[in-house]
Each structure stands twice: as structure tokens, then as C-alpha cells.
Amino acid sequence: MAHAELPFELLLERYPAERGLPRHPLFQTLFGLQVIEGSGTLDLPGLQASTLEIDLHAAKFDLAMDVKIIRGQVKLRLEYRRALFRESSIARIGTVYLSVLEHLASAADTPIGELALLGAQEQSALQAWSVNAQAHETGNVLAVIEAQAKAHPERPALRVPHTGQVLDYGQLNARANALAQWLMAQGLTRDQRVGVCMERSQEMVLALLAIMKAGAAYVPMDPDHPPQRLRYSAVLGQLPEVSGCRIVDVATLSDIASADNPGLEIHPEQLAYVIYTSGSTGQPKGAANRHGSLYNRLAWMQAAWRRNVRPSVPACSDNRVPDSRRPGTTPRPRPEAPAAMPRPAHRSGWH
């Protein structure tokens, strides 16, 4: 240990951790290893000593593993908080640890990444769970919407209760086509990412469809998110001009004429959208999602739940697309911010 002589009080003073009686301020898990040579007992002239195991009624840490090696014999002790772990979970941890030790005893040069942490029974169970005989045909969501617009153009497709906005399939498809054609005329190409920072509205849905119709992928951004998160996604809080990114106010494009389907071939492996994680464990990470995966997920939900799939959660959530409601119902309105709070304009930007 390079800093073993550092006073513990000084470490706590400089380490920004909240202190409290229930938890240790620096760590919650502990692994201890003791190798005891000789008899392992205290030998004194005229005295006989033996080890006395004391039952503990309170755990010092969330999880602690104490390993003692005495004259070649290994003794393992696990201590845990009952409020966090079940006894069965602790027993499984012990079983996995022993399995790893047995494997290393016979093949000490095995890389850590190749160690089998599951027993034969658990591995068989996982393989059985992974067998999926059900398969869905390959397709893309845009083609399904376009087919519905052609077959039933006057059927209601989009209803936003808290704004009163209603679009049928014909209107939805035609307006999305118009915006897609405009984006393509501005130079938008396949697999480019387009940031969308908009409140829930019909304009937001049109923007998402248009971006995918143009062959690009959308990156949803919630206007309620702090500026630091929006800046991390390459679009600043109030969406000014930034280097390499063009900003478009969708509200200014409402007068563009309706158009036919762009007719671009959408490959199942083509990028559809990128969702950023919350960043609770570090910097937010972008998760890329393909058109084939999007179609497969929606097809499964339609078959499994026999419901219409309609969005009712924020666009920046990956559950936006597959969230479903019973036929004949409408999405729940998203609570609006107080009237005094300024709202960013409907804007999108792409690199």
C-alpha cells in the first residue's frame, strides 16, 4: 500500500463522503485474506489455547468475506446485512467463489474473463431460457405507417390531449414526408444524428418520423434537462449556433407543402435513434438502436399484448416507442411546466 501511513482522520477529512452510523464512510464491501503458518494457535508454556468462534449479531459492512488459510486448509466466512441480502443470495455467492477456487486449483493460468461463474445446472437453465422459438418477420416501422396511411388515410393516428392536436394517418405521413424532403434538400444523409429538443406535441412526432424517413437517426433531448446534459449531447441549453451543428426551428417550417414518401430503402441494420443513459454512474453514454430492433420490439409487443402501440412517455426515454395503451384510449398528457417558466422553442440540430 503506497499510502498505508496516511492518518485515517486526514483521509476522512479530505474525502467528500457523508458519514453516518449505519454505513462505513469509505467502503461497504470488504475482502480479507489471512495466511497462518504453523499451528495457528497460541502456544504458551503451561497453557492450552484454542480458537473460539464468536457469533456476531450485527454486520460491520454491507458484505464482508474473510478467508483464512491455516496449514493448507481454507476457511471461508461471509458476513452480510440482512436488510440488503437474502440468505439464498449469500449462499450462491459462496458457491460461486468455491467454484472459482476449484477451477483455479486445477488450471491456475486461466484468465479471469474465462472463469465459469455459474454451475452446470445454472448454465443449463440460462441456455433453456435463451431459446426463443418465436420469430418476427423483418420490416421497418416507417413502411408500416406508410402502408396504413395509404389504406386508411382518414383513420386517427395521433392525438395530443393536453394540446388538442389531432392528425389522421394521411396528414401525419404527408407532413412527415414534407419535412423529410426538406431535410434531405438541406444535405441530411444516412446515419447522421439529429438532435431533437422539443416538448411533447405533434411537431415532435413529425420531426422524429421525418428524420428517420430521411435516412438519419434522431437523438431526443428533454428541454427540462439541465444545460450541462444538453451541452454534453452537443446541443446547448438554449440551442444557439454551435460549431459543426446547424440549428433548425421546426415551427418555421409549418408552411412547407405536403410531399410523397421519400422512397429511401431502410436497411434493418441502419441507425434509427440514439438514446443517452442517465449518467448516474458517470458520463451519459449513447445507446445506438437499429431499425430492425425497433420493428422487432414493436412486432413482439403487438403480438404478445394485442394492443395498439402509442407513445406516452418522454421522447428521451427508450420506452417511448414501445409503450402501449388499450385500443381506443389515448396517451396520458405530460404535466406542463408553470406558465412563468420559459420554454425553449421547437428546435432540432444535426452535425
Rank of each mutant, 00 (worst) to 15 (best):
Q148L: 09
A149L: 06
A149F: 05
K150D: 13
K150N: 13
K150R: 15
H152G: 02
R155K: 15
P156F: 08
P156G: 05
L158S: 03
L158T: 02
R159Q: 13
R159G: 01
G164D: 00
V166S: 12
V166R: 15
L167W: 03
L167R: 11
D168V: 08
G170P: 10
G170A: 08
G170F: 11
L172D: 02
L172C: 02
A174I: 04
R175W: 11
R175K: 14
R175H: 07
R175G: 03
Q181E: 00
W182T: 01
L183D: 00
M184F: 02
Q186C: 04
Q186P: 03
G187Y: 07
L188P: 10
R190F: 05
D191I: 10
Q192N: 05
V194Q: 04
G195P: 04
G195K: 08
C197M: 15
C197K: 13
M198D: 10
R200H: 08
S201Y: 07
Q202C: 08
A210D: 02
I211E: 02
M212D: 00
M212A: 04
P220I: 10
M221Y: 02
D222P: 00
D222K: 04
P223D: 13
P226R: 00
Q228A: 15
R229D: 00
L230G: 00
R231C: 04
Y232L: 11
Y232T: 01
S233Q: 13
A234N: 14
V235W: 05
Q238T: 15
Q238F: 05
L239H: 12
L239G: 02
G244R: 12
G244M: 11
